[in-house]
Nucleic acid binder design. Structure first.
Lengths: 319, 319
DNA sequence: ATTTGACATGGAACGCATTTCATAACTTAC
DNA sequence: GTAAGTTATGAAATGCGTTCCATGTCAAAT
């Protein structure tokens, strides 16, 4: 393999000059520049990027930690990140964790070892303190409502949104409202639980633990949800479903079972994904792509900020 | 930042010995080993992985080229790849191309520059010759039916599967059969077109160009398909839909419009994704995860092979 | 005529871990 | 008792590009 030294020899210049040509630095005569470019061509030279990385201490790689890459929520987030990455000439290294802490640690370790310049954590299992420990090694940004002065974050206010959605359902006459989430742990789920409890207290409703349905991630989990609520003595008349995918699954399942929506069961989805529009599902729009973009920008720039993006209710036919 | 030289000084040994300890090489006395480990601990040392990369010429990074990361087809493929990657301690660098050749070239260039050890191309736009040009720089594997002696491939035989599905529909009484694909170019689409043309010829049917519906990728494209076939003079009575997502969208759309399935329109999906099971859609099972695994193995090992995996028809309620 | 700044070029240090080679002590084998 | 192998250790070379610093030329400014 040709290296920069060989090029220098071939072109009859110093390695410094070669480097200058290769990186478009000024102060190189046309003559020598051409000689170098000619040498590059005839030798089919390509930089050993690892040497560049070692030398510069940067890799133009950004890590992205997410539990599932085949989920539309993260798919959209990733899309936003990827768009910005393209513009900044960054590449993404994906860490699909399945919510396993060990995988998250791998990502943090790569940051420590300088294999990635910065890290976006879309959803985490590990402690916040673990993340903070790794901050000296490079920017880490999170996608959750934390306003510390340590880590950068981009998020929507799930507490407020949840309250808004619950109030909306209440105004529509519902007082038995359930909600579906992914996993129980995680900042978002806690926010939602708080919102739900506060809502229940405010209107003096009965708090029913089984109105909280967890492990709802995919379209096909809709089936499970319907089964579960049908087994209840007093099933909810409305569901807040924190993913349009699952909401779509629920709606489909209801159609199959001839459960009338919204009369027998009202549904509010989350994200405003294409499927929600197509199936005319009332949903909370979450600007996932924008969030992705913002996360990326925070990560490249490395400046500390906590940014809240707006979400809004989109009224359609399932409430 | 501490480096290996500092460690050596701290532990009172040579850098070689430090390296040996760090990489679990034999021939180091317990005593010195402990001294080194102690030094690692007190200095919170972490390898500069870029130096390792430069030195070893390997990065334990594998590139994965795919058009969309938010599509279940590629999601499942990626899942299989990721599983194996984990086992082999490889990380994945994702190249989401949106079918843009320039993005594919970026991936090839990273291979050339040694930033990735090998490359899996799940779907491509660029010429085969372009890929072959880059083979000297590292293993490249493809996910399409090519049996050259240059590039490794893992694939299903889309020609055979398509014929099988068409024959199945024919036996069920259909002779006006349409099919939905993603893009028109690409090896898979060509295979399918060949199969379709051969089928039409075999049974002396009329070849109708508008029975081929392209640009069908997502659930929401189902709407478009139904609109298109309803505008035809003699709409097909059966559709082969090369993605369960789209098939699910079509089925949903038909339910909304009270088009009876399979009586008025029969549907065969592809992939056998969870959504197909849930919606009881007849489909062709494609072992996407296994394909992903296989692709990874071919890429790490770098040995040349062309492997066909089996697909099979799963009879459900949409035919 | 002299100082100053722009332009051009190269030597050498730097980033850091791996690995080959050389050396030496100590066993085991015949 | 000597050859052969095992264990232990370190110096130095290797992988390769970037960049600081020094040096030199030439034109413009004073």
């Amino acid at each position: 393999m040709t290296n920069i030294k060989d090029l220098a020899k071939m072109a009859g210049v110093s390695v410094t000059t070669v480097s200058r040509v290769l990186n478009n630095h000024p102060y190189v005569s046309e003559e020598k520049k051409n000689a170098v470019l000619e040498a590059v061509k005839v030798s089919n030279y390509h930089k050993n990027i690892n040497a560049v990385h070692l030398s510069t201490g940067k890799t133009l790689l950004m890590g992205v930690v997410l539990p599932f890459s085949d989920h539309p929520y993260f798919g959209l987030l990733l899309k936003g990140i990827a768009k910005q990455a393209l513009e900044y000439n960054y590449k993404l290294v994906l860490f699909q964790t399945d919510y396993m802490e060990s995988r998250e640690l791998e990502a943090l370790q790569m940051l420590q070892q300088k294999q990635i310049d910065s890290l976006i954590i879309c959803s985490r299992t590990c402690d916040l303190s673990t993340i903070e420990e790794h901050l000296p090694f490079g920017p880490i940004v999170l996608c959750e409502n934390i306003k510390g002065n340590e880590v950068s974050t981009t998020f929507v206010n799930h507490y407020n949104i949840f309250v808004e959605a619950l109030e909306y359902l209440y105004r529509k006459g519902h007082n038995k409202i359930g909600y579906c989430i992914g996993r129980r742990s995680g900042t978002n789920s806690h926010e939602r639980e708080m919102a739900y409890r506060d809502f229940v207290k405010k209107y003096n409703l009965l708090y029913k633990p089984d109105y909280t349905l967890d492990e709802c991630f995919y379209f096909e989990d809709g089936d499970k949800v319907i089964k579960q609520i049908q087994e209840m003595d007093a099933p909810p008349t409305a569901l807040l479903v924190t993913s349009d995918q699952v909401a779509a699954g629920i709606v489909t399942c209801c159609k199959n079972r001839l459960i009338s929506i919204p009369d027998e069961l009202a549904i509010i989805g989350f994200d405003n994904q294409p499927i929600a529009k197509m199936m005319n599902i009332t949903t909370i729009e979450i600007p996932l792509e924008d969030m992705g973009k913002n996360l990326f920008l925070q990560a490249v720039n490395g400046d500390l900020s906590n940014e809240e993006l707006p979400a809004k209710l989109i009224e359609r036919g399932t409430v």
